[in-house]
Structures are given as structure tokens and as C-alpha cells.
Design a protein around this nucleic acid. Sequence first.
DNA 1: TAGGATGATTGGCG
DNA 2: CGCCAATCATCCTA
Length: 340
Amino acid sequence: MDDQTRMLGLGGGLGALSQADVGDPDSARKQQALGQPQQDIGDILQQIMAITDESLDEAQARKHALNCHRMKPALFSVLCEIKEKTVLSIRGVQEEDPPDPQIMRLDNMLLAEGVSGPEKGGGSAAAAAAAAAAGGSPNDGSIEHSDYRAKLAQIRQIYHSELEKYEQACSEFTTHVMNLLREQSRTRPISPKEIERMVAIIHRKFSSIQMQLKQSTCEAVMILRSRFLDARRKRRNFNKQATEVLNEYFYSHLSNPYPSEEAKEELAKKCGITVSQVSNWFGNKRIRYKKNIGKFQEEANLYAVKTAVDAANVSAQASQANSPATPNSGNPDNYTCQCR
DNA sequence: TAGGATGATTGGCG
DNA sequence: CGCCAATCATCCTA
């Protein structure tokens, strides 16, 4: 009860005000009623009810008068008593509920997709991973990647602006209600705890709206992602030069067609593809070669000649004066023996 | 347009 | 984690 009295600023002085100060047109009647508490309270209540029929100015004046009425503390304590009884029954019903698992899930999802949380240098991990795997030609991959990023950024922006709007509306509404309650606490008993509870109720309401926003944002990201992932499967054959480079390496290392990480990087650079694409290519090539060596015989011979000629050219350039190099001399992995 | 070629994905294994 | 094997999805050509 202490805080209520504090809130009211009732530090005395109510009794010091005369009816004349109040400027009440019914003062004469009330004057008669002084000393009769029951009638006084009835009077006050009547005046409270009458406030709704009055103009704003009149109502303000009446409110002030009521606040200063000498019977105010008595009425207030009665209200407090009534409230105490009713509030007790309410208490315990509204427990502090744990954080909503649904909203937590959505939060995690948005965070993982890079929609919420700190802006990562140009997009989500998902985008980066998808871009790395985005195959075909590197050009198309980058276009899809930037497309994805742009769309994700758009979603992100909308999400944040909407979230901001909600938060602003929530805080505005909360402040408004708090002010209203504080104002009302002058005439009826409202504890800070109750204000807190009211604020919590408002926040719960707003968080349910926020959940809807998060849900629809998640849906948007999922749709975008599925579209992007579908597009990822749209492959393009590597260009001729890239295939040639890969085949050259493959057939010149036929006894051990497993390029090291460095070799893969080198090949990727040469072909303008990613390292994982190089790995895919070698994986596919090894298995398909093994399955049907006969079918690849011609191709193998072709690249054998090619590498032999290249090697010959290199050695000829290196030492023109020396004896000419024999075919395949520069190639430690002579595939021809493998193919028979 | 059918069917082969080819790049990517997936699940299992060591 | 890298690789294999099977499979998918798309491209390409006759």
C-alpha cells in the first residue's frame, strides 16, 4: 500500500482544501453532507459517473476536485481493499511463461539464414555454400548467387523495417498505457507490479504479431532457397578448353588419377571452375573410365599423343642442341599400359 | 524426341 | 574427410 500512497502523492493537504476551492456547483449540498462519510462516498462516486457526461475542461476540473477531496483517502482505501481481494484470486494464474519454443525456432532459422542477426559480409552462409556448389559455368553461378543475395537482402530489409515498425508501435503503445495507468493511479489503486503485468500482456500481444512476421519471413526465405537450389541443379557442360585440361591431367596421371589439393586448385584456376567441381569431375571420370575402359581407349590415345607432342615441344625448346626427346619421355604415368 | 553424355547429389565405407 | 557407386537432372546430338 505504501507505493500506492507514494504514487498518489497524498502527502496530506487534502483536508486543507475547502469546498470553495474546488469550485463545485454542488458545494452547498455537499457542505450539508460533510461529516456523513457514507453519503460523501456516494457523492464522489456519483461525481465520477457524471464525469463522462461533461466536457473535457469540466471533467478535468472535476477530476482535480475529486483528487483533492478530503474523503479521497477513505475511498481509496476501500478500493484498495476490494482490489486486494480480487487480485489475490488472479495471482498465480498468470505465471511467467517460458520463452516460446516456436518463436525460438523461428529466431534460430532466421539467424541461420542470415536474415536476422549481424549483417554478414554480403549474405548468409547458406548463400555462400549454395554458391560454392552452384555449378555449370562460373558466370551463371555468380549471377544466381548475386540474385539470391539480392533477394535475401530484400527480404532482410523488409523484415527489419517491419520489425522496427512493430517495436516502435509496441513501445509507443506501452508508454501510452503506462502513462494512462499512472494517471489513473491517482484515483484508483494501481501498483507498479500491475503496470508491469499490463506491459507484459501488451508485449505478449505484440510478440504474437512479431511471430507472424517471422513466420512469413521464414516462408519467404524457404521459397527463395528452394528456387535457388532447384536452379543449382541446372548444370552447364564445362567449356571445351576446361574439359581438355582436365582430360590431359587425367590421362597423363592414369596410374594415379588423384590430383592433390594443390593440383585441384591449379586445375580449377585453369578451367575457371571450383575445386569441388574438379573433384566431382575426377570422381565421375574415374568411375566412368573404370566401368568402360574400352570406350575411353580412343580418347586415351588421343591425349597420349597430345601430351607426348607437348612434352616433345617443351624439351625441344628447353634444349635445342641436345638430342630430341622420345615420345612420352616426359611422362612418368604412361597410361597406355593401363588401358589394355 | 530418344538416348547418350555429363555435372551434381547422395549414401555408404574406410 | 575423401572416395566410390548409384542415381538424378539436364544438356546435347543424331
